[in-house]
Design a protein around this nucleic acid. Structure first.
Length: 115
DNA sequence: CTAATGACATTTG
DNA sequence: ACAAATGCCATTA
């Protein structure tokens, strides 16, 4: 049986490059209100991007299995946190074309609606 | 089983 | 607008 965390990852994988979603939205997609637990899931994310972990390739995970945890932000448009450093999160997002102004993201432009 | 922990969200001062 | 307090849920010790 799939754990709650794995469900989070499954949903998050739908978010395309250049878009972002929120912890709350993921919880809602799972018909739940456990956005707090979603944050924990991202923190423990075993499928993190190699680039996000500050290391080049070398792992055996397929890109289709990777979870874009850097595309998850707070519901108010702020960045939230990141296991391997918030700065890395910013860098990844910008490299995907997401504009970040004043440590915030315009949800009207970049929010990807689930479900 | 009970208590503690977070990459959150909302309400209140 | 900002900071603190409260509520929240799955996971882990």
């Amino acid at each position: 049986m799939k754990s709650f965390y794995e469900k989070c990852y499954a949903v998050l994988r739908k978010v395309p490059k250049g878009k972002v979603t929120t912890y709350k939205e993921i919880a809602r997609a799972l018909n739940s209100k456990a956005y707090r637990a979603v944050g924990t899931a991202m923190n423990k994310n075993p499928y993190a991007f190699p680039a996000a972990r500050g290391r080049a390739g070398g792992d055996s995970l397929k890109s289709s299995d990777l979870v874009p945890c850097h595309r998850v932000i707070n519901s108010n448009g702020e960045l939230g946190g990141f296991a391997s450093g918030l700065k890395n999160k910013i860098k990844l997002l910008k490299s995907e074309g997401v504009e970040i102004s004043n440590n915030k993201i315009d949800l009207k432009k970049y929010f990807f609606r689930l479900r």
